[in-house]
């Protein structure tokens, strides 16, 4: 058996979900280091996809297909990677706040994070404040994402931030908020760390934030 990391990159860019899973498995079977598959096979592929999206050469249905391919490969790789090797590809817990039944925005953010190699736990819509806190305790995510599409449900996000403080875990977690009526200013006002204006910038903003934190 042999493996070709270039082929993995190329297949990921083409968004061939099943083929990429096969190639990832073949690489593991050929004793390729999992970290090498991630860093030299998959990540350069997703970087390329991200670049193409920004330049208007790729569009959402295509990008999401690549993200799905990435996610399926990561399912195989993740158990074989150490915490350190996972690098920036951490865990995201995401949901829509209580009283709000909007799905697609947070789903898109989740998919984009999966595309970046994240493990994504989507707790769903209309989630009471305590569910966010409980999920944070249970999954110990790097990022907790909250979405609100209505001006009437926006205040729930600030309440969750306060509940995290009360639970004593606020500083162990990075809070990101988003949704059409939300702004950067509002995010700061309620004490969130990050604001994602849309699905693509959410990932970029998070990456920049952790890169800065490292330095």
């Amino acid at each position: 058996m042999s493996y070709d990391l270039g082929k993995i990159t190329e297949t990921l860019i083409q968004g061939k979900v099943d083929r990429l899973t096969e190639l990832t498995q073949e690489a593991i079977d050929s004793n390729a280091e999992p970290a090498k598959i991630l860093n030299e096979g998959l990540l350069p592929g997703m970087d390329n996809v991200g670049e193409k999206w920004k330049n208007g050469e790729m569009f959402m249905p295509e990008v999401l297909r690549c993200a799905k391919a990435m996610s399926k490969s990561m399912d195989i790789l993740r158990p074989r990677l150490t915490e350190g090797e996972l690098g920036s590809a951490g865990t995201l817990v995401i949901g829509t706040v209580a009283g709000d039944l909007h799905d697609i925005g947070k789903d898109l953010v989740g998919m984009m994070f999966e595309g970046a190699g994240y493990k994504v736990i989507n707790i769903g819509i209309d989630q009471p404040n305590e569910n966010f806190v409980n999920a944070a305790i249970e999954h110990k995510p790097d990022v907790l994402g909250m979405s609100a599409l209505l001006t009437t449900t926006m205040p729930r996000m600030g309440e969750v931030v306060n509940s995290l403080k009360e639970a004593g875990i606020r500083d162990q977690i990075t809070v990101m908020v988003g949704g059409a009526p939300v702004t950067e200013e509002y995010a700061q006002e309620i004490g969130a760390d990050l604001y994602g204006a849309n699905a693509s910038t959410a990932v970029d903003v998070t990456r920049e934030y952790f890169a800065k934190a490292k330095n």
Binding site: F59, P61, E62, R65, D103, D107, L108
Partner: peptide, 15 residues
């Protein structure tokens, strides 16, 4: 109900 279309093959083919 409550599903999404953005990742379906149908969307990929028709958008």
């Amino acid at each position: 109900p409550g599903g999404e279309y953005v990742t379906t093959d149908h969307t990929f083919e028709h958008w």
